[in-house]
């Protein structure tokens, strides 16, 4: 089991050295532009001319294509099939199967939707591959995010793998005592209680100790804390963020103009 739950791949690249907020703006900018654009080809355009080149610039193309083929493409493909079959819109029937019609309109609709989801998932995957979570959090804290939020996010990332390991242990232990986790429906419902109980109570017991520990280290103190790591924020970062914001505004304007 991995110690930390994170996609982050440590490499030396232009994308890795960008400010975390810039990369976050980039991810959100692409998602908003893809969803708000009035043209059906915008999401595919982003995939071809923004996301794939960025994965090469960030030197994470192998990891990105792995994730895209394994996770993103199947999900988007399933969505495409479901929607092209079941959307009852349009009149130009291209293909008929049993009681289901595929029309030109429903095909178009499904394609736009699936490619939007593809852009959304891809841009966040790319963001996570090139940004270390604690780097993002210390940068956002420096910009005024309450440090409690940073604590919640970082500590969740650390707790999840621990708790998954604990859940595996509990499942194995209860099975060795004869708990039926694969039998009939009612058996499986019955198995819920002996699994949930130890897991939840076990994790809640640690809460009090941890609260005392972090309080002793000045968690609630309101004075300004210094950071060990300096995260650069260049002029290029600032200009690039403005460019992305303008891009989203332009897309919204185009949508209003054309409707």
């Amino acid at each position: 089991m991995r110690e930390r739950l994170s996609f982050y791949v440590k490499r030396e690249s232009f994308l890795h050295h960008l400010n975390p907020l810039t990369k976050l703006t980039l991810a959100f900018g692409l998602v908003f532009a893809a969803f708000l654009s009035p043209w059906y080809w915008t999401p595919s355009f982003f995939v071809l001319f923004a996301i794939i080149p960025l994965s090469f610039i960030g030197k994470v193309q192998r990891e990105y294509f792995g994730a895209a083929l394994r996770l993103i493409l199947p999900a988007a493909g399933f969505l495409f099939l479901m929607q092209s079959f079941f959307q009852p819109i349009g009149v130009k029937v291209i293909f008929k199967f049993w009681f289901l019609d595929i029309t030109q309109e429903s095909l178009m609709f499904a394609f736009t939707n699936a490619s939007r989801i593809f852009v959304m998932v891809s841009s966040f995957t790319l963001f996570l591959l090139t940004t270390h979570p604690s780097e993002l959090m210390s940068d956002l804290t420096r910009r005024g995010l309450p440090s409690q939020f940073a604590y919640v996010i970082i500590s969740t990332i650390q707790i999840i793998p621990q708790m998954q390991a604990k859940a595996q242990t509990i499942i194995a232990a209860q099975r060795s005592r004869g708990l039926d986790t694969q039998g009939s429906f009612f058996n499986r419902i019955g198995a819920l209680v002996p699994l949930v109980g130890p897991l939840v109570f076990g994790s809640l017991v640690e809460v009090e100790e941890r609260a005392i520990a972090i309080e002793a280290r000045g968690f609630t103190s309101t004075s300004i804390k210094t950071s060990l790591r300096e995260i650069p924020d260049t002029r290029f970062d600032k200009m690039f963020r403005w460019f992305l914001i303008l891009l989203v505004i332009a897309v919204i304007a185009a949508r209003i103009w054309l409707s």
Binding site: Q148, Y151, V152, S155, T156, I159, I160, Q162, M163, Q164, A167, V196, L199, V200, S203, L204, E206, V207, E208, R210, A211, I214, E215, F219, T220
Partner: peptide, 17 residues
């Protein structure tokens, strides 16, 4: 502080459940 410490545990409970 107790709530701030409970929140990550609760999120993990959500996901693992």
């Amino acid at each position: 502080t107790m709530i701030w410490v409970l929140i990550p545990v609760a999120i993990a409970i959500n996901i693992v459940m």
